[in-house]
């Protein structure tokens, strides 16, 4: 069994990590491996410092690597950038595991506590003690906080955990057999 990572998945991964600009950089790197930061900036009409920031961010998580060379004319150091697909797979799997653990932690907290909320998505939901400290007013919008019926959130958390676990088990199984096949 082979595990393959599609180009669009790499672009999506870059988007998740560094936003839309990072996605553009990744798309260009896929089609032009070995491209230099200044060429990327020129092609994408971006500031070269911004491009370098993105490249180093993607390099820090291991999905890009560079080769150091010297410019024959100026003798300056130049960095040629490449995508490291195998590392991207590992990065996706380990982050999925991390998010899964966080969701499980959240699910346990949701199932065993009563939360107070103003009703606006994105605003904090507080435990009784925390809500009392705020005099049952939302710390963001100052609207009154009511006990929150969290059945929908619990259901959404359960489904998301299930979805992640399914993908994880498929990928780790395929990875195991890929490693075993290589060893043979």
């Amino acid at each position: 069994m082979l595990l393959i990572i599609e180009k669009e998945t790499l672009v999506e991964l870059a988007r998740l990590v560094g936003g839309e600009e990072a996605a553009k950089v990744m798309r260009l790197l896929i089609s032009r491996p070995g491209i230099v930061d200044e060429q990327i900036a020129k092609k994408l009409n971006m500031d070269v410092r911004e491009v370098r920031k993105i490249l180093h961010r993607l390099n820090s998580i291991g999905i890009l690597y560079y080769e150091l060379a010297r410019d024959k004319k100026t003798d300056h150091r130049i960095f040629k950038w490449y995508v490291q697909e195998e590392q991207a797979t590992g990065f996706i799997i380990s982050n999925m595991q991390k998010i899964r653990e966080r969701l499980i932690e959240k699910l346990q907290a949701e199932e065993s506590n009563q939360f107070y909320w103003c009703g606006i998505l994105g605003h904090p939901r507080l435990l009784f003690d925390q809500a009392m400290e705020q005099l049952f007013r939302c710390p963001v919008c100052k609207k009154p906080m009511e006990p929150h019926e969290n059945r929908d959130l619990i259901e959404a958390l359960k489904r998301k955990i299930e979805e992640i676990e399914k993908a994880l088990s498929e990928m780790t199984e395929a990875r195991k057999s890929e490693v075993a096949e290589k060893a043979e």
């Binding site: 595990l3 393959i4 599609e6 998945t9 999506e12 991964l13 998740l16 996706i92 999925m96 992640i164």
Partner: peptide
């Protein structure tokens, strides 16, 4: 005999 690496379950996380 291949499996696709998917990011779908954590898209937008």
């Amino acid at each position: 005999l291949i499996r696709r690496v998917t990011i779908e379950p954590i898209r937008g996380a």
